[in-house]
Design a protein around this nucleic acid. Structure first.
Lengths: 270, 270
DNA sequence: TTCAGCTGTGAAAATCCTGTGAACGCAGGG
DNA sequence: CCCTGCGTTCACAGGATTTTCACAGCTGAA
């Protein structure tokens, strides 16, 4: 129906028979496919620029849940489909809640698997294909993903791995408020433990470094009770280099009527 | 964790037993739900501003395919989940290719159905995230969910988390009267204790901030003994610039914005 | 008009959250 | 083996937010 872009799928499965049959079909359909027989680190999946992933739960072993969690957390735009032999409702629910997009029981028909992967990919965000987008510039800051470095006017910022990833994540979502959980999930790769303050600590480190090298600008804003938002703004302080402070340019999009709809949800028996 | 957006689900099913059980859960989860026992024209679904739809194939009869096709075609952003008793691979594939997002076999566990609907909504939301999602405009007010911020003509309203969520909820249901219990349930996430006045207090805070930043407009109206209704209306009051006479017509509102102010009070208390 | 029931207010009290500074472990390099 | 850089944890202080209260002001019905 909709041509969309070609599907770049990775299959992690040991069942060579199934994989062979599936591959034949996906190939015929023009998909780009990569077959793996065991799980690989999420980072490598990121590098593959996939848009869909099919995993057989059994190859994950005990690490299954944490692995799925990491993958779904770090690649929120990836369509993840899990297939498994026996399974319980609880397992399926757990996986789906974890971020998995679909769960198929085995045995399953290749055609249906493909249809489900398509359905999942159809909803995939056409992320700004910014694969090799130029360096990200914000305020006096310049972030080069390829170099794993950030620069301010006079030199590089010297950030540690975590600091850099955090900054990159925030800057990528410039203007948007990111919740702590989401940040943690994407940078650390797994769910934040209750009471973990790592994000806050790193935010402080970033602020310190940014403040020292680029005074007169404030980059990271706190949204109390929610999270943080990256948005370079010249502060009334020093250094009036570039007065450019776009006041939130309304995107566009009419969104159409935003009117009414259901309300009432229930009478809570109090 | 914090559902950026409540799920507005419509269930089309004749199996009252199943629907009853499901409703109990969705209600507890704070979803807005509408139950239908037979198919209704796609246009009416559009009017409901849903973001998820659960259909039992059997109620569609012969029209099934054409109905699903029309629905998926007219509401590309709607998450559609189909459930059915017996089914063949061919049927499932056909439905998925048609645009349906997920297919569940019956009997199925309500919890799994919910998890799948959530997964579908999550995906849908993700694909529309960012620039795609236009801000919600009402009167001089502009609400941006992704930024967790609300703006009036000259700048951002400094709202706290609860204030923002409350405002968003109200504005989302523009024109509709929301009962306190329902408001509390959705914003706070759990049932309101008897005698709790939190909602009232926050309504006051919102009114104060709105009034201060956008004089000449009244946004939140009280419905004695019921609840509150959000509806931007120019008051014959202060308003320095625009002589308040024209109806809701945001200055630089994007064209094509069809703002149907009419409120067809569909949802009746069961 | 009176009354009981709701809602609007202000402010105090109770909680929750974030910013910090510093101590701890760990792992690689010297 | 010691030193140094990094990522984690802790505990506390200062604020920002939420709740809770007591009262005054309204509303609708008898």
């Amino acid at each position: 129906m909709n041509p969309q872009q070609t599907i770049r799928l990775a299959v992690i499965d040991e069942d060579s028979g199934f994989v062979t049959v599936l591959s034949k079909r996906t190939e015929a359909a023009g998909w780009q496919q990569r077959v793996l027989t065991s799980a690989i680190p999420p980072d490598e999946l990121v590098a593959m620029k996939l848009n869909a992933l099919l995993i057989d739960l059994s190859v994950l072993g005990d690490e299954a849940w944490s692995y799925l969690e990491r993958v779904c957390g770090m690649l929120p735009d990836l369509g993840v489909v899990v297939c498994a032999g026996r399974s319980t409702v609880a397992q399926r629910v757990r996986a789906l809640r974890l971020g998995v997009d679909d769960w198929i029981g085995k045995p399953c028909h290749p055609e249906e698997v493909m249809a489900r992967i398509e359905a999942v990919s159809r909803r995939r965000r056409r992320s700004r294909a910014g694969v090799e987008t130029g360096p990200l510039v914000a305020g006096e800051l310049e972030i080069r993903a390829d170099q794993f470095q950030a620069f301010v006017g006079d030199g590089s910022l010297d950030l540690t791995r975590r600091e850099f990833e955090l900054l990159q994540l925030l800057a990528d979502a410039k203007g948007q408020v990111l919740e702590r959980e989401a940040i943690y999930q994407r940078v650390w790769g797994y769910a934040m433990a209750h009471g973990d303050r790592s994000v806050d600590v790193f935010i402080r480190k970033l602020r310190q470094k940014l403040e020292k090298r680029s005074p007169g600008w404030s980059y990271i804003h706190t949204h109390f009770g929610v999270g943080y938002r990256f948005d370079p703004e010249p502060t009334g302080g020093t250094e009036p280099a570039t007065p450019a402070a776009e006041p939130v340019a309304p995107a566009e999009a009419p969104t159409g009527a935003v009117d009414s709809q259901v309300v009432h949800s229930s009478f809570t028996p109090a």
